[in-house]
Design a protein around this nucleic acid. Sequence first.
DNA 1: ATAAAACAGTTGTTATAACAACATAGGGAG
DNA 2: CTCCCTATGTTGTTATAACAACTGTTTTAT
Lengths: 218, 218
Amino acid sequence: MDFVQVSKTVLFQGTRPEDAEAMLKCLEAREKQFQKDETIYYVGDRVSELGLVLSGSVLIENDDLWGNRSILDRIGPGQIFAETYACVPSEKLLVTVTAAEETEVLFLNVGKILRVCTNACSFHARLIRNLLTLSAQKNLNLSRRIFHTSAKSIRGRLLSYLSWQAVKQGSREFDIPFNRQQLADYLGVDRSAMSAELGKMKREGLIQVDRSHFRMEE
Amino acid sequence: MDFVQVSKTVLFQGTRPEDAEAMLKCLEAREKQFQKDETIYYVGDRVSELGLVLSGSVLIENDDLWGNRSILDRIGPGQIFAETYACVPSEKLLVTVTAAEETEVLFLNVGKILRVCTNACSFHARLIRNLLTLSAQKNLNLSRRIFHTSAKSIRGRLLSYLSWQAVKQGSREFDIPFNRQQLADYLGVDRSAMSAELGKMKREGLIQVDRSHFRMEE
DNA sequence: ATAAAACAGTTGTTATAACAACATAGGGAG
DNA sequence: CTCCCTATGTTGTTATAACAACTGTTTTAT
């Protein structure tokens, strides 16, 4: 395994490669390879290990009762998945995780991470801190999404999201990291209806739009 | 301060009162009292301390640009608030926190919790673990809410929520912890429209309902 | 340079939910 | 018991968004 690579992941950042190596031993991490479209975790599973993507990528998907699959997220190299469930092992997965391509995953038992290592492996603290930070950040992302989708109208949702972006980027003029379809999915609305609403807002002089570039008027 | 009480809070659970006492010293916790309606944290603030409610309760509210205030949550004795923001101190608060009544709050600096205590105060580990578990649980709650509100129709949202309750409670027949208004708020729909939809589903033989008691038919 | 694919905007129709206003039922308190 | 208050259900109207089908535009690949 490439410990330099591991030490640069979101979970291990701040550790040195040789520390990462020691930690993986101590944590009895196991590595596994998946073929494209292979399922890694099934909806309804209970899990106690988080997954760290070493190469390739995995899809977090919502397969509903009628067989419709919608993709919620894509996790690439250096990112982790299922960490929330692994922190609360009693909860069943609401999602399915599959390999988007040929993928190598490193599984880490969160229980072991949390238990203070008897070998006085001091890096656990760092790992736990990283985990907490990641969890908190995810939390904020989820809260924000709920926030921006709490308005009933498309316009309300757009204004909520765009105002936040303006504040965040510290300017009335800014770019957003979504195309139209992605923004519509994020806000939970129909793309064409959203497009129409953006057009109306433009005509009313509320905003200026060009592709992913926006400007909020007074 | 009552250390027995503190040791029983969500954050300190699993510690002994005498440990809690040592930890509070070590963490330089500060206690503060608020009058009813006094603001504790303002929207837009950046914070590095989480709040532990010792007595009374606080409201987490969303005050929008037009002055409408909607209450997102109420945090009572033994519960914590602003912990997510305190874990990511660069993020501005999306909400305002006010005292719902006369309230005592203990403020704890998360940075200090995360830094390993030089006094080899071993209880930090416990605290951090509790914090991580709380964060993960909150995460799951938020994810679930997004899940249940991702359907476009009222019926879809109801089925998503009710099916989940049935699975969670391991029975087609179960009670939910909401009244109609609360459920409507949770699902982000109009109460009367939801009531109508429940009636229709009842007539179609999909469900049986009596107050907060539900039964899902095959 | 051209074809193909992805992206974005437009329009008309239809389905659906919000909203408002009211009706009814339940559950205390006296 | 009956009055009151709250929770819940009902209905009709209106506003709004979804949906489908299409056009035009930009990007990418060859």
